[in-house]
Design a protein around this nucleic acid. Structure first.
Lengths: 191, 191
DNA sequence: CGGGTTTTTGAACACCGTCAAGGAAGGTGG
DNA sequence: CCACCTTCCTTGACGGTGTTCAAAAACCCG
């Protein structure tokens, strides 16, 4: 399946009938408030699996963060049939739920306790790591997305990135490319 | 099992061999950072079940928040034996994981998007509701615990409670008793 | 090349955190 | 039961971090 930026993969409250894996682009999972404020709970990058909410319905909406986002989908029922024959698959799903949970708790810690620069530093390191790189993070999402994920405003995100660039800790060859120049300094911020 | 304030029920990283249910008092689940900052992920009140981390080990530490906290424990293995015969039990456990997850997401939204007064208002309503009351929340935890749960400082928690009291939205007959006087005003803050 | 969106930058302000001190509550021992 | 002590909570003043509002700059895409 192919999505353009902002297109919905699944909506909050919908029946959770499928699992998805990102093959290119990225997906944001989020909750919306009545007044329009949005909390992005997580991003899914190529290789990541999402949509495995426990229970019958999705707890979050999922949208593509950019054009040319590709996703492969599999029916839950199919998965369950296979899992019935192959116990290792069931264990793998549990592992994924486990990982998801771990991320959610880390996210709460980030939102509850960290300063702007700590949030940005941690975010960059996380993205780079998940992309299998030590020194480059390519950000497949807008500043607004980053802000709504980190519980900041776009202005603060922008300012903090600029500050890190001025301090020669990162370099930004383009808007969505971050090169990690001084990795240990970044890690020092990611308490 | 009986616990005094601050005593540990289970530690982060320990083997998750048991499930627990609070019968009186309360329990806090939290993660600690190297620098001593603490994020409380949730409170468990009488009737609540905790310790059902997915996977083999606990992801959080759990401590009693006050003296005379009583908890009943059951071995996971026992539970699994029973669940093997009774599928409805397995569904109930899934429901609990579901609820836990829902709370975690709500918590992230709270920490990422809400002001101090919104956090306090929502917290009071949540505690009252879980205690089966419309107009009284009895807080079985210290101000520090509330602060570390809401991502605030104790001073801000205290000031915000005082402000709500001055505005006749709540009354505090004692430190840990909050009477909800103007419920709709409180709900208006809990966007 | 041009129009619209996204990002950056600046200035002023607000909210919350920090530091400090005083006050209330609860537990302990005489 | 009361005095004492410790711990927890409240209140005040101040400062810093991040938000808000506004405008300029950069980027993207047709």
């Amino acid at each position: 399946m192919s999505f353009r930026s902002g297109e919905e993969v699944h909506g909050e409250g919908e029946a959770a009938e499928m699992l998805y894996r990102v093959t290119s682009g990225a997906v944001r999972a989020f909750n919306m408030r009545q007044d329009g404020r949005r909390q992005i709970e997580g991003f899914y990058l190529p290789g990541d699996i999402f949509g495995l909410d426990v229970g019958a319905t999705h707890h979050v909406s999922a949208e593509a963060t950019m054009n040319n986002t590709y996703v492969v989908a599999i029916w839950r029922s199919t998965l369950e049939e296979v899992a019935a024959r192959d116990a290792s698959l069931g264990r793998e799903v549990l592992q994924l739920i486990n990982l998801e949970w771990r991320r959610a708790r880390y996210h709460a810690l980030l939102l509850g306790q960290k300063s702007a620069i700590e949030r940005i530093a941690g975010f960059l390191l996380d993205v780079a790591r998940r992309q299998g790189s030590d020194c480059v993070a390519s950000l497949p999402m807008s500043r607004i997305d980053i802000a709504d994920y980190l519980g900041l405003t776009i202005e603060t995100v922008s300012r903090t990135l600029t500050q890190l660039e001025r301090e020669r800790i990162i370099a930004m060859p383009s808007l969505r490319q971050v090169r990690i120049v001084n990795r240990s300094a970044l890690i020092a911020w990611d308490v």
